[in-house]
Amino acid sequence: MKKLLLIYLLIITTGSFYAQNMSKRAFLTGDFNFTFGINENYTLFNDDDESFLKFSAVMFRVGAGYQFNSKWLASFNVGYDHHTRYSINAIPTYGTLRYNIAVDDFDAFFAEASYGKMWRPSSKYENGDYYKLGLGVQMGGSGRWHTLLKLDFHRKKIIGFKNNTLDSVSLGIGFIFL
């Protein structure tokens, strides 16, 4: 009986110790990304008021996911992309796997990868695949809202588009609600 009580006490103590360190929870996320492309009309050392970078796309994303522990998060996302340079609109739906490289309370430096399907609301181009790789910083806020700053590389596989891909690098600002 004493051995059984000792084992039971050990299991309870170990379980409560790990329960305090576990950070399993569901979350909501959203962000705006802005893409700038190189201006083809820009000439070096010419004072014609042309800027080197030109706004080329805006992307809006929302998602829901689950945090497995302090390092790994997974989410399902949907978004809307508008590429002004090519007059392309897209609706990506994708899954994201995020790994927190460094964590301090609710602050984190992370890398993430995404893969999914990109839907086109017009018949100008075909539907395609969507890929994303990125780095970001999560800054803990008061309460459950936290700010995200991200640098992402997006690849949209569009059949019929030149080289069948549309690549972009974007800067994003968003939130995560844990």
Rank of each mutant, 00 (worst) to 15 (best):
K2Q: 15
K3S: 15
Y8D: 11
L9S: 15
G15N: 14
F17Q: 08
Y18K: 01
Y18Q: 10
A19P: 00
S23Y: 05
S23G: 05
R25E: 13
R25M: 06
A26D: 05
G30H: 04
N33I: 00
F36H: 06
F36Q: 06
G37M: 04
N39V: 08
L44R: 13
F45V: 04
D48F: 06
D49S: 13
S56P: 00
V58E: 07
F60C: 03
R61E: 12
R61N: 11
V62T: 06
Q67I: 07
Q67R: 07
F76S: 12
F76K: 04
R85A: 08
Y86P: 01
T93Q: 03
Y99R: 02
A102F: 14
V103G: 02
D104W: 09
F106D: 04
S122V: 05
S123I: 09
E126I: 00
D129R: 12
D129Y: 11
L133T: 10
R144I: 09
W145C: 05
H146W: 09
L148R: 04
L149M: 12
L151K: 00
F153S: 08
H154C: 04
H154Q: 07
K156T: 07
K157T: 09
K157E: 15
F161L: 06
N163Q: 11
N164A: 12
L166K: 00
S168E: 14
V169W: 02
L171W: 13
L171T: 13
I176Q: 13
